[in-house]
Write a protein that binds this DNA or RNA. Structure first.
Lengths: 128, 128
DNA sequence: CAGAATCCGACTGGATACTG
DNA sequence: CAGTATCCAGTCGGATTCTG
């Protein structure tokens, strides 16, 4: 890590790195929806599909694989017929819920301001 | 919004929506880095480039435009020569910092566990 | 200095059809 | 039921060049 002469420079990426990591695995449009859907307990693949109508089968699968890979969800296969697979949040993932709450509150609190800012900006630009 | 018969279904997307909004404008690889870089006060375009060496000029511009549009940063042009532009976080954006902190702590606390989980998963798969 | 414009490859993500 | 496989459109994002 080459530390620049201005003490601000190098620190930024290092400091933000963990945040970046979290968001990388959470940023996906679906990760959060899936995790929220699973907060009440184990949930099956099809139940997830119904709970999140907008997700495609493919994306749901990919999202679940990533969450599983990162240790945020467990995948349990019941060798019955028809097959039955349940997904469940790990304790680690449950802790994340708290962090989401902070974000949610921020979002709800400022949602209007963001929409307004956006409109204002768009008008300024359109008026060019 | 068509509310499904199972009460779980529709709620998930509705409940997660604000979170989704936050992440949509924060998820970009650069938004957070830019905002972190600006926490100490107004910062110039070139300073941002130096603070985040990995970002391309194009992406930095786009990121700044989006942040500005959403009312998260302000852009001030000083009509000097050479031109000078300063970016600054809005109060709203500064509040976000708190939320990031929660995430950061979670990330730092579980970083090891995530890496481990990932390795374990990868080995399981490679062993197929 | 602070961008805008253009080109283009890489990746994302949806729709659909097929399988154990 | 719970996926996998394939195709394909749209978007992201880097490199480069040009401008007030």
């Amino acid at each position: 890590m080459s530390r620049s002469n201005t003490d601000v420079s190098a620190e930024v990426e290092a400091e933000a790195c963990p945040v970046q990591e979290v968001l990388d695995r959470v940023a996906g449009k679906w990760s959060i929806l899936v995790m929220v859907a699973a907060t009440r307990g184990p949930i099956r693949f099809t139940e997830l599909e119904r709970a999140i109508p907008s997700v495609s089968r493919r994306m749901l699968t990919l999202t679940l694989r990533n969450l599983e890979r990162d240790g945020l969800m467990t995948r349990t296969v019941f060798p019955t017929v028809p097959p039955r697979v349940e997904y469940e949040l790990t304790p680690m993932a449950r802790e994340l819920r708290t962090a989401f709450l902070t974000l949610t509150e921020w979002a709800e609190h400022h949602r209007g301001a963001i929409v307004d800012a956006r409109h204002a900006y768009d008008e300024r630009v359109t008026a060019s």
